[in-house]
Design a binder for these strands. Structure first.
Lengths: 159, 159
DNA sequence: ATCCTGACGAAACAAACTTGCATTTCGGGG
DNA sequence: CCCCGAAATGCAAGTTTGTTTCGTCAGGAT
């Protein structure tokens, strides 16, 4: 929850650029990089966490290493776009652990999902659960990733 | 680079489940949660980092807070699928900072991109640079995200 | 039976984070 | 032009966390 309207100066942006790449970087080193003392860096980080600029601190797990070597994109088109049904779809998609990302979009589809599964059998089972069992999915298109060329949540920073 | 064939036991998976949610959790607390001492936890984490099971440790930045409130999906279809040209496209897409994610996929498209931009003008400029200036893009379809329903890189863990 | 390997926990140690406080910086009146 | 208050800073002390060391134990191979 953003606590207030955050306005970031060049120090904040420089700190974010580092944390976005490696959030285990010691505050001392960050301080040296941006010309600030370690406590100053620490206060800024805390503030950005509280205001929601930093949404989380996570370890990125390699899917293949934990038995989910397959990444799949799905474009989902609904029958009805009634708000009520849209919300139901959002909840259902979000609830599935295999659904890594879910976006509600404009264009020739209503949702785009990013899914990680162990094998095509698991994907097939998931489609049955998410799409066929729902009466509101008109159709969906599947794209299987052959190469995860670039993966991350990195945002380009001004400055 | 994975150093060896990693095989993860239930301790490793339990640790990953925690780090994937919050990698600032003290090793002491992780130890209590999984019934291991702090040094044991620390050794396992280091091993998983070295073997590539943990691909990175990052702060997740809220795009809207840093001037990139718009997320866009693009399906890209190439003219030619010669390996050489595919690789060139991979490199070009990856090089763009606005391209947060890039996947080479099967199906009715060749690439799927996830892009974050400040406004539609920036997106329009980016399409010109990435697609129109390249002679190898047959067409592309754009989906603008109205709601980032679920965003992350979390992978479901067995156990 | 013995050795070797790998992993563990407890304790010592080093490093990082956090807090308190005096000082500085920066704007906006007076 | 100066003064004042809010906000941010650096330093130093205190606390927590991360890291290494070391002795022990279990399992497998010799």
């Amino acid at each position: 929850m953003p606590a207030s309207p955050p306005s970031l100066d060049s120090f904040d942006l420089a700190i974010l650029a580092i944390l976005q790449r490696d959030n285990t970087t010691p505050q001392r080193l960050i301080g040296e990089a941006v010309n600030l003392s370690a406590p100053a860096v620490q206060r800024r980080i805390k503030r950005m966490e509280q205001t929601g600029v930093i949404a989380g601190n996570v370890a990125v797990v390699e899917p293949a290493a934990v038995g989910h070597p397959i990444t799949i994109f799905v474009e989902v088109e609904l029958e009805s776009e009634r708000t009520e049904l849209i919300d139901a779809a959002k909840r259902q998609f979000s609830a599935a652990p295999e659904v890594q990302q879910c976006y509600y979009v404009t264009g020739e589809a209503d949702f785009i999902l990013v899914i990680t599964v162990a094998d095509m059998g698991a994907y097939e089972a998931l489609t049955r659960k998410l799409f066929f069992d729902s009466n509101n999915v008109r159709k969906f298109r599947t794209f299987v990733a052959m190469d995860r060329v670039k993966v991350g949540l990195t945002v380009p920073l001004p400055g």
